[in-house]
Design a protein around this nucleic acid. Sequence first.
RNA 1: CGGGGCGUAGCGCAGUCUGGUAGCGCACCUGGUUCGGGACUAGGGGGUCGGAGGUUCGAAUCCUCUCGCCCCGACCA
Length: 479
Amino acid sequence: MGADGITPRGEDFSRWYQDIVQKAELADHSPVRGCMVIRPNGYAIWEKIQQGLDRLIKQTGHQNAYFPLFIPESFIHREAEHIEGFAPELAVVTHAGGEKLEEPLVVRPTSETIIYSMFAKWVQSYRDLPLLINQWANVVRWEMRTRLFLRTTEFLWQEGHTAHATDEEAETETLQMLEVYRRFAEEWMALPVYAGLKSDSEKFAGAVRTYSIEAMMQDGKALQAGTSHNLGQNFAKTFELQYQTADNRMDYCWNTSWGVSTRLVGALIMGHSDDKGLVIPPRLAPLDAVLVPIYKSDEQRTAVLEYAAGIEEELIRADFMIRTDAREQFTPGWKYAEWEMKGVPVRIEAGPKDLEKGHVVLVRRDDRSKRFVPRDGVADALRETLETMQRDLFEKARAFRDERTIPVDSYGDFRDYMAADRGFARAHWCGGAGCEEKVKEETKATIRTVPVEEEAREDGTCVVCGAASPRRVIWGKAY
RNA sequence: CGGGGCGUAGCGCAGUCUGGUAGCGCACCUGGUUCGGGACUAGGGGGUCGGAGGUUCGAAUCCUCUCGCCCCGACCA
């Protein structure tokens, strides 16, 4: 462990991750196994994610609503594949009000069943469609093994649910939201992602097709960062979600659902942070900058704090989130380390020399580069620094990912590459579940995503069995 | 749920084998000197040793059971 108490990434990635979560005060373990207390620093990041994404969701025409936590157990059982996927991880309430319940209540693992049963009441004709709903909620899945943010028993997420008149429209919606997630990941989170289709073995139970975005973490492993499902008419048929067509027939609706969760906070950590602590892309940082005043004598103290107060006031007026760290009991150096640990994107230093020269020092968190900027231009300089840092973080992550995503054409090479834990392989796949299963058993790698763009088409032979393959797919070990 | 590791002050650990007054570093509190990359000094506070039961004159230490965390596997966003 280093002087700052963080296990270096290269030494033990998993411990490094836990150290960041603890030391940056993002989350803590609750008394209940597998559950997580999201601490203020962590929750502030989640709030930024919510704000950014909520806007994109609304801009694409969706409205927020809220459906209840409790779902009648029978609802979950109605859709055969759905229950098969979820049965082992359900938490069920059997008693309430001091009595045994007539029908047990499931704590939602996801809300398809309750939402589409309600949609059935609201949709009469094609004129009621499309119905575009989103909800921000908590869900519970009784997982065997948990990790803070990445997989917890209870987690926070957003789940969109829509109903459409045609299959084509539902598919368009599914892809639209996949694109929203891709944009959010890349432009807000500065995480480059591969977007594409899930193989049958990885798709959501109850969906016709599942799409996802997949990001590469700094240890070369994949993190599924968002999913978008085309549900077909599976749930519509189960819950009698029908509508009257323009030519007076009855038809079942076509549904989609899509979500991202607090797991994204984990993605941010593992995507950008370093051995000094948390690194957050500026667009998602709760604080834009921290101002550290520096002084020796009392006269300096008075002058510098006044200088700092003026800067802070100006930056707040320019709509930045900023805090001055005027704590007396810590030295500037100590504060630098502390704020680096917590991932504040920019540090502003202001001391007697800066006051004298009429400038301030801006230091970037990611590369710790220093800039001296005139006092009067501090707001513009800060804005520019944050924008540059946002871009640089994305480019750095993209270069890392690209370098570690390599084409592989023989099964021997494939096994060697996966054994080295480097990253993703782009290899041909015949589409057979058997080949996928064999790879998983022998290398622990799975198909992360199947690229669907036209440009991705390429004739080749399956890296496992040698049969004809229309495209390379992305393979990797996953969280 | 299987295999491995670990629970002792807020954090990191020693002490456990071989039972005998619970320690160290950091953090915390008070004073003084410091302050542009994790300051120095003097004094001080803080612990049902994860929990329960047992053995013993005496248990952090030995025995039994139990709970939690981490790593590896099976399940998953």
